[in-house]
Amino acid sequence: MTNTSSSPPSQSSFNIHRFANPRTFLRFASKIQSWVTISAIIFLVIGVIWGLCFSPADWQQGDSVRIMYIHVPMAILASGGYFALAACALCSLIWKHPLADLAAGEIGPIGAVITALCLITGSLWGKPMWGTWWVWDARLTSVLVLFFLYLGHITLLHAFDNQQKGYKAAAILALVGVFDLPIIKFSVNWWHTLHQPSTFSIIHAPAMSLSMIWPLIFCFMGFALGFIALVCMQLRAAILERQVRHFLLNE
């Protein structure tokens, strides 16, 4: 096990610690916090009202299609959140950055809630449309695996008496689990699934009318900004809690 205190001082001019130390982050985060939160709320209010009241019903799904305005952003954020978790894990394992450990600890629970919401709203959409709450097809199963990866990450983080060991074990799990993300994305193309393939792709025009795409974009922006705002808030709290502990120990 390597530890930073015994390693020789870094000779490179680029030192990642200087760019992302907790104090700089704290100043930066408290400055952007209100802006991110307010714009998230604005986007969400516009997107949800647009999606619920003004966007057209689908020709065969009827009004049930409006579940999409929650389900799709949640699905994208569940994967995106895990990607952020894995990036934190990489920073934590290679550069031993303390902020990365804290960030991973705060992204985990929020990501788990979002993945659960993705599964629940998907289930509530599947029952009236497909005729079933749940099937064990490749897409649904791989998203369930993602949910358990989040849960495993949370558990591992707190499983050791030595907090550093917990961070390390959780980071390794986060990196191993990143392989689930391409499986989720491409499961609908690689194997026959009950879940339909992606509506959006890089090479084709989206198979959705513009009157539904716009509220979806607004909802996605709202949920994404809300996710960032939540992580920011939790991470600030976590840094301050650490300072409080530090003060109390030194007294």
Binding site: V48, L52, G62, D63, S64, R66, I67, I70, H71, M74, L117, I120, T121, L124, W125, K127, P128
Partner: peptide, 14 residues
Amino acid sequence: MTHLPYLIAAYGIT
């Protein structure tokens, strides 16, 4: 509209 409860439940839980 028969599927309203599902829609309300999805938005409500979220």
